[in-house]
Design a protein around this nucleic acid. Structure first.
Length: 280
DNA sequence: CCTGAAACCTGTCTGC
DNA sequence: TGCAGACAGGTTTCAG
């Protein structure tokens, strides 16, 4: 699920609630059940279980791909990684069950309302932190791509400061916080820039085009409630607007040439070799 | 500094 | 039907 638009969609849903589910805001956590130890990055399980109780969820925000829950004293940070999901379901058991009610539940936070927050994560890559110093975990992140302080001049100078392949650089969360494999491929296609170009070879105009394309794709993704592919379905619609992602061999929507797939930084990378040339 | 590979996991799909 | 292999929205760590 989880690039910036998918995380944003999940958090908006938790804040707003819906017809069958209440908002998570202002609910109080009364206890926790941890079903997969490695899901908890810090602190130790016993300390986590004692510190998490009697905490009100005062605010919910996002930083990059991190979910940030503002509690009374501490911050609960959750990263969904490849297959994580968060949703409310009714509390059906004692506070310290050893086994989850559903397969793949890794953490359950019991709430005073009779509901609970489920951290569901098939592949077990997701991580949870409870900390009083969120900057110790979020401090390394780069700018938010939608931050208005990021203008084309700043983006150009950031690109100039590195000599790295664009695809892995844009996915590096220390460079920009929030892009993943889908939105990076779509943005590079939209800006007509080859994913293997080195960052310091872009012109100022190309840098401006790329920044605009990144924002256009992220905003489209948010508008569409994210992308829903494979068996991990959340009701998003952005997958119906993919131009190149997972379109290997299909005709390019601009020129009709088949879309290429290659591997860069161990990740599938989709692009049009004619619209996104290495050299002009 | 930069790139690539391996590791962490489970599930789905394809091809023989 | 079974089974091996490739692949999946991410990040960390290590080798060269």
């Amino acid at each position: 699920m989880p690039e910036l638009p998918e995380v944003e969609t999940i958090l908006r849903g938790l804040r707003q609630g819906n017809q069958s589910t209440p908002s998570l805001l202002n609910q109080t956590i009364v206890g926790a059940s941890l079903f997969w130890q490695k899901t908890l990055a810090e602190p130790e399980p016993a300390i986590f279980l004692s510190k998490i109780a009697n905490n009100k969820i005062n605010n919910i925000s996002r930083r990059g791909k991190f979910c940030v829950f503002h509690l009374n004293h501490d911050f609960l940070l959750i990263h969904l990684r490849m297959s994580g999901d968060l949703y409310l379901r009714p509390d059906m058991g004692p506070s310290y069950d050893l086994k989850p009610k559903q397969a793949h539940e890794r953490l359950y936070l019991h709430l005073d309302s009779g509901w609970g927050l489920v951290f569901y994560d098939t592949r077990k890559f997701g991580r949870v932190w409870l900390t009083s110093k969120p900057e110790s975990i979020l401090g390394q992140l780069g700018l938010e791509p939608l931050d208005p302080h990021l203008d084309s001049d700043l983006f150009y100078s950031l690109l100039q400061s590195k000599s790295r392949q664009l695809k892995p650089l844009l996915m590096d969360q220390r460079f920009l916080a929030g892009l993943g494999n889908i939105y990076t491929d779509e943005a590079l296609f939209d800006a007509r820039i080859n994913p293997l170009r080195l960052s310091n070879t872009l012109s100022p105009d190309e840098a401006a085009d790329l920044l605009n394309a990144i924002r256009k794709m992220l905003l489209s993704g948010i508008r569409d409630h994210g992308a829903s592919i494979d068996w991990v379905y959340r009701g998003g619609n952005f997958q119906n607007h993919f131009q190149v992602y997972q379109k290997t061999g299909s005709p390019c929507p601009r020129c009709g040439n088949p879309i290429n797939r290659t591997v860069v930084g161990q990740r599938s990378t989709h692009y049009c070799p004619l619209c996104q040339p290495m050299h002009k």
